[in-house]
Design a protein around this nucleic acid. Structure first.
Length: 232
DNA sequence: ACCCAGGGTCATA
DNA sequence: TATGACCATGGG
């Protein structure tokens, strides 16, 4: 099964190329983006981050000091702005209390993960985004796309609890930060560019690895594919 | 006029 | 432990 995971990775990488994740100029921008992109299109997050930059507020101190109305106003384009204002502030307050990211970088991965999860508004996926993309820890991020893709490929069932799924994938791939970084980004890229026919494989980026290739069914990993089941 | 996005929290059962 | 409601903008 480890080979299969590697094969899928190679197909995605060949089709989409390096993704250069996480987008962001600083470690803090990466962490803030991880909170703001919760159930939200990245294009909307970019607008919110641009607002923060324009207001010179893209720092833990500025955000912690800002009023709720001010902060929510900057975050408006990213949606859920009232909730995200609270979450981002809670994260910044916590970050300042810990003495900043430089200090946190010395923590062990399990301890850092547990600490992140204790912050209001930081769930498993957001914590893992931060661990992998801001702290370069070998943590495989599990999102809805990952569940559906690996589930449909038969690598896993797909309905396992988050921790179980993460543990399985990490065990099979082996701790590898650059690989985890690229893999998760490629799965998202695959979702955006939903298996459009590529010259390379004739069907979708996964080519012969797609379980439904014979029906020329494109291996979608969006929710909508759940309602039009066509693959196995 | 739908559908849904690089989720998480909280209240119920 | 496992559902369901809720949060909200913007692009297809």
């Amino acid at each position: 099964m480890k080979r299969r995971l590697r094969a899928v990775y190679r197909r995605l990488h060949a089709a989409h190329g390096p993704q250069h994740w996480w987008p962001g100029d600083t470690v803090f921008e990466i962490m803030a983006g991880a909170v703001l992109t919760q159930n939200t299109a990245w294009t909307n997050v970019e607008k919110a981050i641009a607002n923060l930059k324009r207001a010179k507020a893209l720092s833990p101190g500025s955000i912690a000091r800002a009023t709720h109305r001010e902060l929510a106003g900057w975050l408006k384009p990213s949606g859920y702005f009232n909730i995200k204002a609270k979450r981002l502030r809670a994260f910044c307050v916590w970050l300042l209390a810990q003495g900043g990211a430089r200090r946190l970088a010395r923590w062990s991965t399990p301890k850092l993960r547990e600490a992140l999860l204790s912050v209001h508004g930081i769930g498993p996926e957001t914590a893992d985004d931060i661990l992998l993309y801001a702290f370069q820890r070998p943590v495989f991020v599990i999102d809805a796309y990952t569940r559906r893709l690996f589930g449909r490929l038969g690598v896993v069932r797909g309905d396992e609890p988050y921790e179980v799924l993460r543990g399985e994938i990490e065990k099979r791939l082996g701790a590898d930060v650059p690989l985890f970084n690229e893999y998760h980004a490629l799965i998202v890229a695959h979702a955006k560019d939903v298996c459009r026919p590529k010259p390379r494989c004739g069907h979708c980026a996964l080519g012969s690895l797609c379980p439904s290739r014979s029906e020329s069914w494109l291996l979608q990993i969006h929710k909508s594919a759940d309602r039009n089941p066509r693959g196995n």
